[in-house]
Design a protein around this nucleic acid. Structure first.
Length: 1125
RNA sequence: GCCCUGGUGGUGGAAUUGGUAGACACGCAGGACUUAAAAUCCUGUGACCAUUGCGGUCGUGCGGGUUCAAGUCCCGCCCGGGGUACCA
């Protein structure tokens, strides 16, 4: 053969290996460039053609950058921990390390055959103790740090402890679990255990009881990104919610920085969007809704029934939450520091002395009454000296209080000091004689009923739409909400208990799949809308999630679809409060769904009526902040990452337990190696496999952690370790990191958007905070290669027979012959006359669809959609006696694009293709398929074209006898133009990662040079460098036989000389009203006016003008001439 | 549902800034070479009309719009792929 690719490729692969051509140094005069691939999990199946797609692209870019004079770091390694190897170990008893080792060897062999320029000296394997030592080390650092909101970075726990010792935690603003305020003294009086417990609230790696995704089949918990639709991503097993004591990483502390960081990195919009959604920032407000007082705990029996007594439902309270919030501090202060006269009077009134319960400094409406008897609605005011100055205000106040049914009596300071007995008598008389009208009577209130104060029982809700607060008609709590037990009324107790039980037993999957099922229960309690003072019923439903916001919502049925269906189902009112732009208010009874409009005007909304949604939101938040009943709040959906796995094949935690508290091993004890176990299964008591290990404790005898780390632990900082892969003193040296900085180009699948790509950014930001790495984003540019889909082939079999019919006869494109019909005689084909009904009719097609069955057929026995009938018969025993109805003597298959999968018989293995066409052809073909980022079907038939091209390229350098024939003859301008046009285009294309068009460019260039019969060194030597990133073996061979002794790897990229590209003439398309009609060639420097003259004079132009004068002539130099008629 | 993407011949795709739509390749058809096959080379290949020749009409998912000019920009839909989901 002319071009012996297998000999050439083996030769140069051996050369590169022997000469360590791709070994990269950490010190160089050259500028650095870091190209990284997402390292693979070495599965037993080996690589398929989808795998190397990204590796080829990154390898091309790497080689290109080397030609451009960069020192390029391009490493590879293995994400070696993982479930498949462990599952295999459980089944076979073989240690997962052995399986992994074997799979890695296979991967390496496959990778080597494709000619990648990885620096294998830097290889990492996450399961290697030298590597996971630093995973463990980083975990210790996470444990020893907390997130300081004031400085917005991670800081040392040791420093935090110092602050606790000095001033407690009052001044600490940390991103931590909920922790009560304590003083320095309180801190010091805590036991060691208590202190450790408190510190766990702060640590970035912390142990806590968490609701986790427990997967019984896998016997482990899973992170949120490992669960989709209630099923595990690996294996598709059911996942349930369960509370377990687990390690978590406080990634939520970094939510804002993870979000902001997206602004400055060059990633695709779609992947940024996925991360933004995953982080899920929502800006809104937390607002306190007070419980309706009469239903506060323990006082239900004392319920006042001021208004129409509807059973136990109260309709009265002395003030509203707003005023209470505003005045409570004053009231309390005034109680503590009474004036002299107030005190004298109080001593006579207190403790039921008069037979009536009197309270002092009670908030009534928006005033603080000095004394009040609620059961008789009597207020007693003591007027000090200032009364003289504010008589008017006091009169007004009296009037207001009378309006709401109170009587006010006043005494002066003098009266009380000099005539206290008289004052008491007056009061007593008033109280005894006062008779309230029916329904107004508050009844006898014997126990202390501090209305205002007990309004302090609040439920905090989170909303992003505070502007809709006037449309709230009920509140919904998540079933886990802790307040439920204390607010549920006796009547509702049973119903609530039943509902809570039901939700508990409902699986996460059921909950998610039965979204349309509306369920809920009324607690019997009411809350007060702080803006309207209306009471709203409090419901419980599992459509409110415990993990988000406060686990409680204010329901706005008119403007939230979930609240809407809930309100409809339970018959709750639906008032409209937002008018979407351009709409009229309507009766919500006629609505089919809510109007969740983000734009519009507030209506029926008190003081925000008429405002836009945007202004309304601001106004309400300002209002609640001012009143101290709510505040601006930002919520993130991002949850802390659960970091424990109850599995064997993962990094052991460097953790031991003392007195039930976790402690970190000393760094000198690292790595803590994975111990041997007898079985890779949980123990009988349900402990993780590590509990089976012997001597799994420290030298002092403290037990070691039995969980292992999850898959993302080892992949979160591997890009940093590559910089200094063999450093046994530190995770990487400062110098190495200072030189390599971060990854310039990262290529990998988009499926890691919410897993690895978030965790790695978090991990990196933490190391950045520690001052270990210099960049706070790990991956500057990210490209997600598209999936390579499979192209499946189908054959059609007549149902109930073993007769296969060729594709075009199924769709009716080719007629069924008389003999075909005879062969099908036993299979009734009905009345259709096929000879007359052709060409294909939909009728025919649907008829046939009913008669035949599509069967997947192995793509390896199909060539160009033509089935190899003999191979098919041998393929499966069932088909040994298959009969065929052919077209033109061939069996044509149908085809379709599906995912690449063994079960669909459409898997392509790169090794076969390398054997048949060579690595260079495979590399170029994978690029030629289409844009890197786009998903596309793998179709082998196109590979022939690339193979032809490569041989044609080879022939530029060789004559008919396959002898090297490059000459030193001077190149002519035409040849130089071809070369430099190619240089320009190839460079442009690589820079914008458009590898498919680059391959086309090589083809065009080769076709042109072939036509020119060009065999000149001046052209062909630079051309070899140009193609070297794509077809490195071919290029290396041509480079050497052209007389070079060094590897082509570091040859300078050909310099573009624009001078060769200058065109003297341009062939103008002449268009009329935008439609191109003919062409005319003009010199590029000719004046526009002359072009116009010449064009209009052209006979063809005259034809199109039809004698009319052109309205306008547009001439864009070197682009187009357009004549408007 | 929401968000992101994409939709161009029989197929993969090209058209980078609004300026000749379909480059390049596959496939297909015809031809050359050959005893034959493979390989190689040449010609044609968006659809429709015309075909003796010149040629003409339509055409980038659909419907509008902006412009001298739209695959490309704007508005409204339809369909495929991916992400996400009671996230308030």
């Amino acid at each position: 053969m002319d071009y012996n690719f297998s000999k050439i490729e083996k030769k140069w692969q051996a050369y590169w290996k022997a000469n360590k051509t791709y070994k990269t140094e950490n010190k160089s005069e050259k500028p650095k460039y870091y190209v990284l691939d997402m390292f693979p999990y070495p599965s037993g199946a080996g690589l398929h053609v989808g795998h190397p797609l990204g590796y080829i692209a990154s390898d091309i870019y790497t080689r290109y950058k080397r030609h451009k004079g960069f020192n390029v770091l391009h490493p590879m390694g293995y994400d070696a921990y993982g479930l498949p190897a462990e599952q295999y170990a459980i089944q076979t008893g073989q240690h997962p390390a052995i399986t992994t080792e074997k799979n890695i060897a296979r991967y390496r062999e496959q990778l080597d055959k494709i000619g990648f320029s990885f620096d294998w000296d830097r290889e990492v394997r996450t399961c290697n103790p030298d590597y996971y030592k630093w995973t463990q080390w980083t975990f210790i650092q996470l444990f020893n740090h907390y997130y300081n909101n004031k400085t917005n970075k991670a800081e040392s726990i040791a420093e935090l402890v110092k602050i606790f010792e000095k001033e407690g935690n009052i001044n600490i603003d940390a991103n931590c679990s909920e922790t009560p305020v304590f003083t320095a003294d309180e801190w010091k009086s805590k036991s060691e255990k208590q202190q450790q417990e408190t510190l766990l609230n702060y640590r970035l790696a912390y142990l806590s009881d968490t609701m986790v995704n427990w997967c019984p089949q896998l016997g482990t918990v899973l992170a949120n990104d490992e669960v989709v639709g209630g099923l595990s991503v690996r294996g598709g097993y059911a996942v349930e919610r369960k509370s377990m004591r687990q390690w978590s990483l406080r990634i939520s502390a970094y939510a804002e920085r993870l979000l902001q960081g997206l602004e400055n990195i060059d990633w695709s919009d779609s992947i940024k969007e996925i991360q933004k959604n995953w982080i899920g920032k929502s800006i809104g407000a937390e607002i306190n809704f007070h419980l309706s007082p009469a239903l506060s705990k323990g006082e239900r029996d004392l319920t006042p029934t001021l208004s129409k007594g509807e059973g136990v439902k109260p309709r009265f309270y002395t003030t509203n939450p707003l005023d209470w919030a505003a005045l409570k501090d004053n009231a309390k202060k005034m109680r503590k520091e009474p004036t002299e006269t107030e005190n004298i009077l109080w001593q006579c009134l207190r403790g039921n002395q008069l037979g009536f319960k009197i309270r002092r400094q009670q908030v009534v409406s928006n005033y603080i009454a000095d004394f009040v008897c609620l059961s008789k609605k009597l207020i007693i005011e003591v007027d000090g000296k200032i009364h003289e100055q504010q008589k008017e205000q006091d009169a007004e106040r009296t009037l207001e209080l009378e309006k709401i049914g109170f009587e006010v009596i006043r005494f002066s300071n003098e009266e009380i000091i000099h005539n206290i007995d008289n004052v008491i008598d007056t009061i007593k008389y008033k109280l005894e004689s006062k008779v309230l009208s029916l329904g107004e009577d508050l009844g006898e209130v014997s126990k202390a009923l501090s209305f205002g104060e007990d309004l302090g029982e609040v439920i905090r809700i989170f909303t992003t739409r505070p502007d809709t607060i006037f449309g709230v008609t009920f509140m919904v709590l998540c079933p886990e909400h802790e307040i439920i037990s204390s607010i549920t009324t006796a009547e509702q107790k049973e119903a609530v208990a039943n509902y809570l039980q039901w939700t508990k037993n409902r699986s996460e999957r059921e909950r998610q799949t039965e979204v349309n099922k509306i369920t809920g229960v009324f607690t019997g309690a009411y809350a007060i809308n702080p803006l309207t003072n209306q009471e709203i019923p409090i419901w419980i439903s599992d459509y409110v999630l415990a993990g988000y916001g406060t686990g409680a919502i204010m329901a706005v049925p008119a403007h939230d679809s979930r609240d809407f269906v809930f309100a409809r189902h339970f018959g709750l009112p639906i008032p409209q409060v937002i008018l979407p732009t351009g709409e009229q208010a309507e009766d919500t009874a006629n609505w089919k769904e809510s109007k969740d409009s983000k734009e519009g005007t507030c209506i029926n909304s008190g003081f925000i009526t008429g405002m836009t949604v945007k202004d309304g939101i601001k106004a309400v938040i300002d209002f609640v902040e001012e009143k101290g009943i709510g505040k601006r709040m930002i919520n993130y959906r991002l949850r802390d990452a659960i970091f424990s796995r109850q599995r064997y094949w993962g990094e052991p935690f460097p953790v031991y337990y003392k007195d039930g508290m976790p402690y970190m091993l000393d760094e000198s004890k690292l790595p803590l190696e994975l111990p041997a176990v007898d079985k890779y299964l949980p123990t009988e008591s349900g402990e993780p496999p590590l509990a089976r290990a012997e001597n799994w404790h420290t030298e002092e005898g403290y037990p070691l952690e039995c969980n292992t780390m999850p898959g993302f632990a080892g992949s979160s900082a591997y890009y940093l370790r590559y910089m200094d892969a063999h450093n046994d003193k530190e995770i990487f040296s400062k110098e190495a990191n200072a030189y390599w900085q971060n990854v310039d180009l990262y290529i990998g699948g988009a499926e890691h958007a919410t897993g690895h790509l978030i965790y790695a950014r978090f991990w990196n930001k933490f190391l950045f905070d520690m001052g270990l790495c210099v960049k706070d984003e790990p991956f500057q540019k990210l490209i997600n290669q598209g999936m390579i889909q499979g192209r499946s082939n189908f054959v059609y079999r007549f149902k109930g027979s073993n007769i296969f019919v060729s594709y075009n006869k199924v769709i009716g494109k080719v007629q069924l012959e008389q003999e075909d019909l005879e062969r099908l005689g036993t299979l009734s084909l009905g009345d259709l006359n096929f000879h007359d009904s052709l060409p294909p009719s939909t009728e025919f097609k649907s008829f046939m669809e009913d008669k035949v069955q599509a069967i997947h057929v192995d793509i390896n026995i199909v060539d160009n959609d033509i089935l190899d009938i003999e191979a098919f018969k041998k393929w499966m025993p069932d088909y040994a006696n298959a009969e065929f109805i052919l077209e033109n003597g061939k069996y044509h298959c149908d085809w379709g694009v599906e995912k690449m999968s063994k079960s669909l018989y459409n898997v392509q293995n790169p090794d076969d293709l390398v054997v048949r066409y060579g690595a260079d052809t495979l590399r170029m073909y994978e690029m030629f398929l289409g844009p890197l980022e786009q998903s596309k079907p793998w179709d082998t038939k196109g590979i022939e074209g690339v193979f032809r091209f490569i041989r044609k390229f080879w022939k530029l350098y060789h004559n008919e006898n396959n002898d090297f024939c490059v000459t030193d003859e001077k190149a002519n301008p035409q040849e130089l133009k071809v070369l430099h046009r190619t240089i320009k285009k190839i460079q442009d294309d690589i820079e914008r990662f458009s590898f498919n068009t680059a391959v086309s460019t090589f083809m065009i260039c080769t076709n042109e040079l072939t036509d020119l019969k060009c065999h000149k060194r001046e052209i062909l030597q630079p051309l070899a460098v140009l193609i070297s990133p794509y077809a490195p073996h071919l290029a290396e061979e041509l480079w050497h036989i052209s007389g070079n002794n060094e590897s082509i790897t570091f040859a300078a990229f050909p310099q573009l000389n624009e001078a060769y590209l200058v065109e003297n003439t341009f062939n103008y398309p002449i268009s009329f009203n935008g439609k191109t009609r003919f062409q005319m060639e003009f010199a590029t420097d000719i004046p526009v006016a002359e072009i116009e003259k010449a064009v209009l004079a052209h006979p063809d132009a005259q034809k199109w003008l039809e004698g009319k004068a052109p309205k306008k002539v547009i001439i864009v130099p070197k682009k187009i001439v357009n004549i408007v008629i």
